[in-house]
Design a protein around this nucleic acid. Structure first.
Lengths: 178, 178
DNA sequence: TGCTTATGAATGAATG
DNA sequence: CATTCATTCATAAGCA
């Protein structure tokens, strides 16, 4: 769990030297290469951010929903996080020149940031997957009436498939509802 | 089931928006989150591909075997050689009415050879670092005796580790299982 | 009841 | 850094 320790300490994208050291340490427990460490940090950071993002988006969604739910309905006090900071706020040090052992603009608990490692991750990027988001689409809707308007979920097959079916994927025209 | 319908319709990797809608619809039948839908598609696609791949490999193996039966020494290995083919083998599977570009049956590695294809960059490490290379720091000393002087770089604790650095289960030393 | 299968979840390894 | 794929884990379901 060394890696997580380091991660919690603020290490996000270790540079070559750091990776070397980490790898050296970890090699005690078994065969390990630098790329393993590298990948670990990559994945961990990405997934951490993902989770965070989903929290944010969920909250935002809730807020949005509540805002649009009723004009007069007072928001149940959820003013937490409205992080819409400038798009140029995250910028890690592209693993080249920056040492993030001490972190920087993040709440890097240099000592011991147990919970709440709020990272001002990106927010202006295109659309990634907010799926992992626990967008409880089920909760906002009262069980007595479902706002589902029978979306045409079947014929949707638009730009989701761009890599694998790149050859000549199914035509997304009028999918004739299979 | 709805998801299978969609899958058959050609949906493979729905994007965020699609997942949202699907989740919304499915939420009518019970509690469901976006990640569930995401995982479903991931798994379904993967296993579909897996089945396909297995079938193909089996067939090709049979053919290969039969062809080389009289020519070369018949491989006494069990016919359940299974997968271990080039990572990029087949890409799509047949959808009912979608496109089934099963093509790409490239040089079906008749003899998959173990090659150390590594380190594709080594150029300006502006993007991918060069540790993807097999820089093995664990080499200087046998992994069974700790040569590392326990660098005080960070608080390393040898608690249970079974996934992070054990991508290779070949932990020669006592893998300090917890 | 013990085993095999099916499946959701998670993670390592890439690739773009 | 985002996205995808392959593998693996854990567990529930099905069956002999």
């Amino acid at each position: 769990m060394i890696l997580e320790e380091m991660y919690r300490s603020g290490v996000r994208t270790p540079n070559a030297a750091q990776i070397q050291q980490i790898t050296a340490h970890l090699s005690y427990y078994g065969k390990i290469e630098g790329k393993n460490v590298f990948y670990w940090f990559q994945n961990h950071k990405a997934r951490e951010r993902q989770k965070l993002r989903r929290r944010l988006s969920r909250h935002q969604q809730l807020l949005h929903y509540q805002l649009h739910q009723s004009e007069d309905a007072p928001p149940p006090s959820s003013p937490i996080l409205q992080n819409r900071m400038p798009p140029h706020f995250l910028h890690q040090e592209a693993t080249s020149q920056g040492m993030d052992l001490v972190g920087k603009l993040e709440t890097v608990g240099t000592e011991e940031e147990e919970e709440e490692e709020e990272e001002p991750m990106t927010s202006a990027m295109g659309f990634e997957q907010e799926w992992l988001a626990t967008m409880d689409v089920s909760s906002p809707v009262p069980p007595c009436c479902r706002p589902l308007k029978t979306l045409d979920l079947f014929p949707i097959k638009s730009t989701g498939l761009k890599d694998e079916c790149s050859s000549s994927k199914s035509s997304s025209c009028s999918t004739s509802t299979n």
